[in-house]
Computed example of a mutant assay.
Amino acid sequence: MSAALTPEQPAANAALTPEQPAANAALIPKQPATSAALTPEQPATSAALTPEQPATSAAAGSGRPAPSWRQPRTDRDSAEWWAAVARHELLLQRCAGCGDLRWPPRAMCARCGGFDWTWRPSAGNGTVASWIRSHRPFAPGVPLPNVTVLVRLADQPDLLLPGGWTGTGEPRTGSAVRLCFDDIEPGLTLLSWEAAP
């Protein structure tokens, strides 16, 4: 049952006047729009970066250099995986509790919640689940157009690994592919895919 409103009880959804600010409005100072054109005084934050536009990061002002976009951020769970990729090997975590394979590397099994696991080699065979061709740079030095492929591994149907496309022609969804490795620069190797023979 709704009660009649009196002047002392304004409707929650009544039109607001400048004298009546919304109760749930964020009370923050006005900020410039993030999509506004960048000026030399405003370094790029999420726009495509060029050598003239320095990247800002959490390290800004701390005396530490901003991390390179090319270098992966490793942690205790992924360091061995990246080391294997540098050796041109693909490793997957296998849960010691339920036997489930997982990628990306992480401490806990999503299926059983177990924390014990081992590394298992993979042949790197699969099928194209999806792919995209980008005509816009996501980082300096990346050749355009750039094709990224999402591959469903044969090892386990729910494992999807992204990578570049080094095959000839366009990838086709559902087509068989095999893993190859792309040595981008010294110290950086990434996954790439090509059509299986």
Score class of each variant (00 low, 15 high):
Ala25Glu: 14
Ala25Asn: 08
Ala25Pro: 01
Ala26Leu: 15
Ala26Cys: 10
Leu27Tyr: 08
Ile28Asn: 11
Ile28Gln: 12
Ile28Cys: 06
Pro29Asn: 11
Pro29Val: 10
Lys30Asp: 07
Pro32Met: 09
Pro32Tyr: 07
Pro32Lys: 12
Pro32Asp: 14
Ala33Arg: 14
Ala33Ser: 15
Thr34Phe: 13
Ser35His: 15
Ser35Leu: 09
Ser35Trp: 15
Ser35Lys: 11
Ala37Trp: 02
Thr39Ser: 14
Pro40Ser: 00
Pro40Gly: 10
Gln42Ala: 00
Gln42Arg: 15
Pro43Trp: 06
Ala44Lys: 11
Ala44Ile: 06
Ala44Phe: 04
Thr45Arg: 14
Thr45His: 13
Ser46Phe: 14
Ser46Cys: 07
Ala48Asn: 07
Thr50Lys: 10
Pro51Leu: 09
Pro51Cys: 01
Pro51Lys: 04
Glu52Pro: 00
Glu52Tyr: 00
Gln53Tyr: 03
Ala55Asp: 03
Ala55Ser: 15
Ser57Asn: 05
Ser57Pro: 02
Ala58Phe: 13
Ala58Trp: 12
Ala59Phe: 14
Gly61Ile: 05
Gly61Cys: 07
Gly61Val: 05
Ser62Glu: 08
Ser62Asp: 09
Gly63Thr: 08
Pro65Gln: 06
Ala66Gln: 03
Ala66Ser: 15
Ala66Leu: 02
Ser68Asn: 13
Ser68Thr: 10
Trp69Tyr: 12
Trp69Asn: 09
Arg70Phe: 10
Arg70Met: 13
Pro72Val: 07
Pro72Lys: 08
Arg73Asp: 12
Arg76Asn: 09
Asp77Thr: 14
Ser78His: 07
Ser78Asp: 02
Ala79Leu: 11
Ala79Asn: 06
Ala79Thr: 15
Trp81Gln: 01
Trp81Met: 11
Trp82Pro: 01
Ala83Cys: 01
Ala83Arg: 13
Ala84Trp: 00
Ala84Asp: 04
Val85Lys: 02
Val85Asn: 03
Val85Ile: 11
Val85Thr: 02
Ala86Phe: 04
Arg87Asp: 12
Leu90Arg: 06
Leu90Ile: 06
Leu91Asn: 03
Leu91Tyr: 04
Gln93Asn: 06
Gln93Ser: 04
Arg94Ile: 02
Cys95Asp: 05
Ala96Gly: 08
Ala96Val: 03
Gly97Met: 06
Cys98Glu: 08
Cys98Thr: 06
Gly99Trp: 05
Gly99Lys: 05
Asp100Leu: 12
Asp100Asn: 13
Leu101Pro: 05
Leu101Asp: 02
Leu101His: 13
Trp103Leu: 09
Pro104Leu: 12
Pro105Thr: 05
Arg106Pro: 01
Ala107Met: 11
Met108Phe: 12
Met108Ala: 11
Met108Tyr: 12
Ala110Ile: 05
Arg111Ser: 10
Cys112Lys: 03
Gly113Cys: 07
Gly113Glu: 07
Gly113Gln: 06
Gly113Trp: 04
Gly114Leu: 05
Gly114Glu: 13
Gly114Pro: 03
Arg120Gly: 01
Pro121Cys: 09
Pro121Arg: 10
Ser122Thr: 04
Ala123Cys: 01
Asn125Thr: 12
Gly126Met: 09
Gly126Ser: 10
Gly126Trp: 00
Thr127Met: 08
